[in-house]
Simulated assay, not measured.
Amino acid sequence: MPRSGRHFVQYSSALFDIPATPLVSVEGSGSGFPVHRIFCVGRNYVAHAQEMGNEVDREAPFYFTKPASAIVLSGATIAYPPGTKDCHHEVELVVAMGKPAFRVPVEEALGCVYGYAVGIDLTRRDLQQAAKDKQRPWDLGKAFENSAMIGALTPAERFGAPADQAIRLSINGTTRQEATLRELVWSVPEIISHLSRYYHLLPGDLIYTGTPAGVGPIAEGDLIECSIEGLSPFSVTIGPAE
């Protein structure tokens, strides 16, 4: 377990309530998977990096984060995100950690996985690009409410290992993104092993592993559907902006 280094004072009451920990449904289970942290891998498909005018860093993967409060479950209707005129969809394989992992070897990494799901990383592309232009962090473009979508989790023993399963996303019945998990630049075991050098990964952590080519804008009224072979499909409807 990580060394906390924090000192907690006991209080008789809290000043106010905060939202409960998000729970993700698990196929075949009456229990929910509590979300602790969300890590996301950038530029993990060559074709996507190229369509964005970037190159893949083959020395090591890189990451950004989202708050657990960004979680959206399948079947929801969400408002078009505020502060943007160019919000993009990015379908991804999501890895759910089920055991602690710190400096875990690549060959042992999959043993720390609880399960997998299909997800969407929503991106306020205009805000992300503005931050890039000024060499600033991407938080406004990536870490916002309703930006981490996820379908029901399938336990790892039922899904197997990520291999050549197809990954797809469609909007209003038209396919926008399509690839296979074999096209990931950094595999799931490599990502877990590398990330665990810098964090004590814990049960409840989610890792969004990167998106294939074909990302593009969403609009009010869109029905977004995505799937990965062997996993529960996901759908979400984009409502009017607030």
Score class of each variant (00 low, 15 high):
186 W>T: 00
226 C>F: 13
179 A>F: 02
187 S>W: 01
205 D>W: 09
174 T>R: 15
128 Q>E: 15
197 R>Q: 12
126 D>S: 07
162 P>S: 05
141 G>R: 02
137 P>V: 09
208 Y>Q: 04
188 V>N: 02
138 W>V: 00
146 N>A: 11
120 I>E: 06
156 A>C: 11
214 G>V: 08
128 Q>C: 10
170 S>K: 15
202 L>V: 08
202 L>H: 11
126 D>A: 10
110 L>T: 00
108 E>M: 15
144 F>K: 10
229 E>F: 12
187 S>Q: 15
115 G>C: 15
208 Y>N: 04
137 P>G: 08
118 V>A: 15
215 V>R: 01
215 V>E: 03
113 V>Y: 06
204 G>H: 12
216 G>M: 04
192 I>D: 07
120 I>Q: 02
212 P>M: 08
102 F>H: 15
181 L>Q: 11
214 G>I: 06
204 G>M: 07
170 S>L: 10
187 S>L: 11
163 A>Q: 14
200 H>V: 09
95 V>K: 02
114 Y>W: 07
226 C>K: 03
120 I>A: 05
150 I>V: 13
132 K>I: 03
220 E>F: 06
145 E>G: 01
124 R>P: 00
106 V>F: 06
217 P>A: 14
125 R>C: 08
121 D>I: 05
188 V>T: 06
123 T>I: 10
175 T>I: 14
190 E>V: 05
112 C>P: 01
119 G>S: 09
136 R>D: 06
100 P>N: 07
137 P>L: 11
176 R>H: 15
161 A>W: 10
